[in-house]
């Protein structure tokens, strides 16, 4: 049994919230710069140049890339041989978010009640997912999620007879409906299978996966490439002004599902796709 103090979790989450919001990950930069090299339209190229200039300024000056510093999505993969000491784990995660968003001058974008509203003032609570895995390590992923793109996401419960074509059509339908709203170029996360809730979680995990990593199953890796091409053929382009680059990546995650169903969730993320992973 390995003991880990929850104070350590707080400290790491605080730092990761700040770094995730100010330093765009290398895989995302690389995807944007590759797309910039392929664009021909003058407005599209100009927009991508400004996007690159923006994340360079943010990185150098340690300021948020985007003012929507998001809800703090936190994924913990906890080795079953880990024992947390010195306090409550969920409270420690929230404390890390509270300190990160306060000390890092990040925007507090969370309301305490979905209908009655009221800002919590410290960006808590985190959207926390925990998973028990073999081993004695803790893998932490922090992904601040903005809502311009989150609001354009959708989930549908398909009949199995809809088949692969149903999923393909749905992905395009969601991107089309999103249009210019989610700050294209976007990252498309697709979750297929599981139950209603699991499909949404798979889609969220899909946008947390590095953009240069394809699905290990060749069937889905091919589908990712095919659908990225089809999404980009829509012509929505950077910021919706028209162009080749509507999406910089499309990741698909899947799992088993029921004989009667085929849930599919499409989670949209903007070009400021923030994900940061560390292992304790």
């Amino acid at each position: 049994m390995r003991e880990i103090s929850v104070h350590k979790i707080t400290e790491v989450i605080e730092r990761m919230c700040i770094e995730a919001n100010t330093q765009l990950p290398g895989d995302v930069k690389c995807a944007i710069e590759t797309c910039r090299a392929c664009e021909d339209g003058s407005i599209a190229k100009g927009v991508l140049d400004k996007i690159i200039e923006n994340y360079n300024i943010a990185g150098q000056e340690n300021v948020p890339i985007c003012q929507d510093t998001g809800m703090a999505c936190v994924f913990l993969e906890i080795g079953q041989d880990v024992h947390f000491i010195d306090g409550n784990l969920a409270d420690a995660v929230d404390e890390g978010v509270r300190r990160g968003y306060t000390n890092g001058y990040l925007r507090k974008s969370v309301v305490a009640d979905p209908i009655r509203r009221g800002n919590t003032g410290d960006n808590t609570p985190a959207m926390l997912y925990t998973e028990i895995v073999p081993g004695d390590q803790v893998k932490i992923t922090v992904g601040p999620k903005g809502f311009g793109s989150e609001n354009m996401s959708q989930l549908r419960m398909f009949k199995p007879s809809a088949g692969l074509q149903g999923i393909k059509d749905f992905i395009l339908e969601v991107v089309e409906a999103a249009g210019p709203n989610p700050c294209p170029p976007i990252v498309v996360g697709v979750g297929v299978g599981g139950t209603f809730d699991k499909a949404a979680l798979l889609a969220k995990k899909a946008i947390m996966r590095p953009l240069d990593q394809r699905n290990p199953d060749p069937f889905y890796a091919d589908l990712e490439a095919e659908m990225l091409e089809k999404v980009n053929a829509l012509g929505i382009g950077p910021q919706g002004f028209g162009g080749k680059t509507t999406a910089i990546a499309l990741n698909i995650e899947t799992m088993a599902t029921h004989i009667a169903g085929m849930p599919c969730a499409v989670n949209i993320n903007c070009h400021v796709t923030r994900h940061k992973t560390e292992v304790l």
Partner: peptide
């Protein structure tokens, strides 16, 4: 008018 969404650090300048 549209400003570039996600370019908050640049626009602040």
């Amino acid at each position: 008018f549209g400003a570039i969404g996600g370019a908050g650090a640049l626009l602040a300048k």
